[in-house]
Structure formats: structure tokens, C-alpha cells
């Protein structure tokens, strides 16, 4: 009975969504083009940033990104408090296994390369696809590789929180400096340089590097917390 009601409801929803979106059409310029043209023109003329998605995320909606990073931080905190353990239970890994020597040697070789790729992605966030979020996630994937291959590989919680706090301070500090120099929060106050150079775009690379470190620390914390959770056996 419940299934029938749900299927009828979903059919009605699907019919509504289908008629709406098939009328819009795929690949047609159906949005108000003023917004898009403004962003593209402003990005290449005034900010001198190549990647328009980066300039929208960090500059035009920089305050939104600050909120997003804060939401991630809250998620890590909630995870830690939900999976709270008493003192004598700490230290045991739930996922215990012995990896073969091929896996351990391979991941030890691969780990620096993965970290380097992540750093490259977030340093070049204003020039090529990628940015702080992508680079941070790639770095967290590198730590995941090590945590899965070595049973007693551990990440220091103290260093994670230090890196995360410093990156957050840099983000908010750059925003406040913009407030002092330009009048609005996260206003650009550095010279923007030449398009398609590494040192261009004003404060955008600085903010994206801070976001990269912050996201990497937060996601590594998530993986570490969940991996050290001991279920009821």
C-alpha cells in the first residue's frame, strides 16, 4: 500500500519535472544572458583570472565559500561528537587487516606523487580546472591510501587542527584586509597581474591555497575519525 502511494507520488513529480524541463530545451541559451556575460567579462577584463568558475566561487561569491568551509568544519565537529568514545576504548582500529607488501610499497611510492598533484591542482586553481576543494580532496585521498595500507599509520590530531585553524585565519584575515583597504569584505587589494600567469588574479590564489589546506585537513579528520570507530561486535 505504501509502495503504491509512493509510486503515484513519484509519477506525479516526474511528470511535472519532465514537462518543465523538456520545454526548456537542452543546449539553448535560455537563461538571462546578462548574468553570465557580466561574470565572463568581469573575470577576463578586471580580475585577470582564466578560470571563470574559480572567480565566481572565490571572488563574486567568496562569502558563500567561507560559509561552505565553515559547514565542513561543523560536519567534522559533529562527526567527532557523535562517534564519541570513552578513554579506554580509544586506540583500536575497527578495520584491521594486513596488506600485502606490494600494496604497502606501492602506496609509499605513490603517496608523495598524490600530495604533489593535490598541491599543483590548488596552486593552479585560477589557471586550469581545479582549485582548493579539488586539491584538498586529492590530498585527503593520499592520506586515505596510507591509512588503508598501514595498520598503525596515524595522523596527529593536533597538527590537523593547527593547519585547519591557520588556513581559516588566513581566509578571514584576507577578507578583513580587503575590508580595510577597499571597503567591502573580501575585496581585492593586490595587483591583478597579467592573464594566464601564475602570479595573477590578486587575492584569489591566496584564498584558494588556504581553502585547499583547510579542506585537506578537514577531510583527513573525517576519514581518520570514521576509520577508528569501533562497532558493536
Amino acid at each position: 500500500m505504501k509502495k503504491v502511494i509512493v509510486i503515484l507520488l513519484l509519477a506525479a513529480l516526474g511528470f511535472y519535472l519532465g514537462t518543465t524541463f523538456f520545454n526548456i530545451g537542452f543546449g539553448d541559451p535560455h537563461f538571462a544572458n546578462g548574468v553570465k556575460d557580466f561574470y565572463l567579462k568581469e573575470t577576463v577584463d578586471n580580475l585577470h583570472v582564466s578560470n571563470t568558475v574559480t572567480s565566481i566561487v572565490v571572488n563574486f561569491r567568496g562569502f558563500d565559500t567561507l560559509g561552505e568551509v565553515t559547514v565542513l568544519f561543523l560536519a567534522v565537529t559533529a562527526l567527532g561528537s557523535i562517534l564519541y568514545k570513552r578513554r579506554h576504548e580509544v586506540g583500536t582500529r575497527s578495520v584491521l587487516f594486513s596488506s600485502s607488501s606490494v600494496v604497502t610499497a606501492g602506496s609509499k611510492l605513490l603517496f608523495p606523487a598524490v600530495i604533489l598533484l593535490g598541491v599543483y591542482v590548488f596552486v593552479h586553481g585560477h589557471l586550469s580546472p581545479g582549485g582548493g576543494f579539488q586539491g584538498g580532496v586529492i590530498i585527503a585521498t593520499g592520506f586515505l591510501l596510507m591509512l588503508l595500507s598501514y595498520e598503525n599509520y596515524s595522523v596527529s590530531h593536533k597538527w590537523l587542527s593547527i593547519v585547519e585553524s591557520l588556513a581559516g585565519i588566513v581566509f578571514a584575515g584576507v577578507g578583513l584586509l580587503g575590508f580595510i583597504n577597499g571597503g567591502t569584505f573580501l575585496q581585492n587589494f593586490l595587483p591583478t597581474g597579467v592573464l594566464n600567469n601564475l602570479f595573477s588574479g590578486g587575492v584569489i590564489p591566496i584564498i584558494y591555497i588556504a581553502v585547499g589546506f583547510k579542506v585537506a585537513a578537514e577531510l583527513t579528520g573525517v576519514i581518520y575519525t570514521v576509520l577508528h570507530e569501533k562497532g558493536v561486535k
Binding site: 537563461f31 553570465k36 561574470y39 565566481i56 566561487v57 558563500d64
Partner: peptide, 12 residues
């Protein structure tokens, strides 16, 4: 160019 605004939204 394709519209960058939905891409920034989905990234978030």
C-alpha cells in the same frame, strides 16, 4: 562559452 554559474553552484 557554457554558463559558469550552475557549475559553481554544483561545485559547492
Amino acid at each position: 562559452m557554457v554558463d559558469p554559474v550552475p557549475q559553481a553552484l554544483v561545485l559547492t
